[in-house]
Write a protein that binds this DNA or RNA. Structure first.
Length: 571
DNA sequence: TTAGGGTTAG
């Protein structure tokens, strides 16, 4: 017992080695409990070399011995030896238990190896083990991180004893991987089953709400957090800043920020980013010196948030100044993301030559985001040669991303290079790639409706299409010319027009026009960027109907009012 | 001997 408590008090590997020597000298190492505890202590300090020497010399081993070694190796990131020991367990005829399996499943999760994860899952089933909370949670987590959401959900639904942790995992997973609406449905179901959420569960719900951009849900969740007396500490407060900002209310985000007792670099960066999405670049920049005065140093994300805020507000000189001083003033070395912000900033301002010069002179490795930013700018200013160069680089970097092929095909089509259009289309078909669907959500009377292109699943589809038809006549009379360049160029012009008129955000706007009361803004959330044609369309709708439309897309807010958009100058 | 976590962008 004395040696066990000595091990518990060890603060470093040196102290563990001293205890190791003592128990060896007095012969206590023969006792399996002592040896296992020593092994565990080494593993906790990630001293797997020492652990392995001890393990190799142990004459007697039990399941704890194996498990501690497997868990320790996985925790230290030594997956090769972790799988090696697991194979040895199986070869020796020992059965993995409800401790072994979570360690192994988490190792598969960490290396994102779905195939191996399924193998371990099968081994567990064949062993006839009754999986407990830990095994189930590890399996759900592994399937989620390997993006096998259907497997994760199937398992979750079959689980007899779901607990708070497994519910939280599923809620977080749906928020992360594209179905935030389902996260909130699960949150309600969890509470129906009398499971009381804790802070981590609330964090996931707040995160889901931020993704969905649903204002009434944000208000409900804020109220729930207050009623249940969750403290607005750094973590939850920061998540709430992000939620309010992404639901369209930057003032509430600022109220949360001001009310937080303690703030760190993450909270400040979140607030700077919040002003950034709303095109309030000056307010974002004003926070920076305040942050520094409060003794907080910026990190790489603070600078990304600041530079995007500049980009979304057209503050080119301010952005250039921040970019050139970040290393000297605060020791933050510009990485590819910062260069991307600068390309975006210069590109939107039409300073394409400078953007290109920046790319040519950069020493850090270029990625797809950087070329994407340059391509975006080329499309706005019709710079065909550069656009082609950027699109080809993108295709090389991301051969599996169908969006990249569509962009390049559209660029060729705009230049009338139909042979090249056909070549790209064939490449897509050969590689069996399909364009990722764009989704649009609209909140009407506390309900979130979801639309995809050409969607007819809504019960009021007839009225929506009727509204769209009458709207298109009014818009065309007012001078709107549909820009079919935003439709994949493999269909006839007439079909293209049909597709263009049923883009998911147009369906949502048409629905919003008759389903929301006059005088209130139509609030839309998109999972991708607003395309140029939908941008023009929304502006014209705001002019002919006198309605305000607020669209949140993948990176920012657009406020359409009286035929203008808040980002007109920097689109 | 075993779980889930905040900020940018896409």
């Amino acid at each position: 017992m004395v040696y066990i408590s000595m091990l518990l008090n060890c603060r470093n590997v040196f102290q563990i080695r001293q205890v190791h020597t003592q128990v060896l000298v007095i012969g206590m190492l023969r006792h399996l409990i002592v040896a296992n505890k020593l092994l565990y202590t080494y593993a906790q300090h990630k001293a797997m070399g020492d652990a392995y020497v001890l393990f190799a010399g142990m004459r007697e081993r039990d399941s704890v011995t194996w498990n501690v070694m497997i868990g320790g190796l996985a925790k230290a990131g030594d997956y090769m030896n972790c799988f090696g020991i697991f194979r040895e367990v199986i070869r020796c005829g020992a059965r993995p238990d409800n401790y072994t399996l979570p360690f192994m499943i988490r190792a598969c999760r960490d290396i994102v190896d779905l195939q191996m994860g399924r193998v371990i899952h099968d081994i567990g089933l064949k062993c006839g083990l009754e999986p407990d909370h830990f095994v189930c949670a590890a399996l759900v987590d592994m399937y989620v991180k390997c993006r096998a959401m259907e497997d994760a959900r199937l398992l979750f639904d079959k689980m007899q004893n779901r607990n708070l942790v497994t519910w939280t995992m599923m809620i977080g997973a749906y928020a992360e991987y594209g179905n935030a609406k389902e996260s909130l449905v699960l949150f309600d179901r969890m509470r129906d089953q009398d499971i009381v959420p804790d802070k981590v569960a609330m964090l996931m719900v707040v995160y889901a709400c931020a993704k969905l951009g649903a204002m009434h849900k944000a208000i409900f969740i804020h109220d729930y957090i207050c009623r249940n007396k969750f403290s607005l500490d750094i973590t939850l407060g920061t998540a709430m800043i992000d939620m309010y900002a992404k639901c369209g209310n930057v003032d509430s985000a600022k109220e949360i920020f001001d009310g937080m007792q303690e703030k760190n670099v993450v909270s400040w960066s979140a607030m700077i980013a919040a002003y950034g999405y709303h095109g309030q670049g000056r307010k974002a920049l004003a926070l920076f010196p305040m942050m520094l005065r409060s003794g907080i140093s910026p990190n790489r994300i603070t600078y990304i948030s600041l530079l995007y805020a500049c980009s979304h507000a057209g503050l080119v000189e301010e952005g250039l100044q921040l970019f050139s001083s970040m290393w000297d003033d605060h020791g933050v070395r510009p990485d590819v993301k910062h260069y991307t912000c600068m390309v975006d900033l210069l590109g939107r301002a039409g300073r394409l030559d400078e953007a290109l010069k920046l790319i040519e002179n950069m020493t850090v490795e270029k990625d797809e985001g950087l070329w994407g930013a340059l391509l975006g700018a080329c499309r706005i200013y019709g710079h065909m040669d550069l656009a082609e160069k950027a699109a080809e680089s993108l295709l090389k970097l991301q051969p599996q991303n169908p969006g990249r092929y569509v962009l390049l095909s559209n660029i060729y089509a705009k230049a009338g290079r139909w042979k090249d259009v056909a070549k790209i289309r064939n490449m897509m078909m050969r590689r069996r790639l399909k364009k990722v669907p764009g989704w649009t959500w609209i909140e009407v009377d506390k309900i979130i409706y979801q639309f995809s292109v050409g969607d007819k699943t809504h019960p009021q589809s007839e009225e929506i299409y009727g509204m769209l038809q009458s709207l298109s006549k009014r818009l065309e009379l007012a001078g709107y010319v549909p820009d079919t360049n935003f439709v994949l160029h493999d269909v006839e012009e007439e079909v293209k027009l049909g597709i263009l008129y049923t883009h998911s955000e147009k369906l949502a706007i048409a629905f919003g026009l008759f389903a929301t009361p006059e005088g209130t803004p139509i609030r839309i959330t998109k999972n991708l960027r607003v395309c140029g044609d939908c941008h023009t369309f929304s502006k014209m709708v705001s002019a002919v109907t006198q309605r305000e439309i607020i669209v949140r897309d993948a990176s920012r807010f657009h406020h359409f009012k009286m035929g203008a958009c808040s980002c007109d100058d920097y689109w």
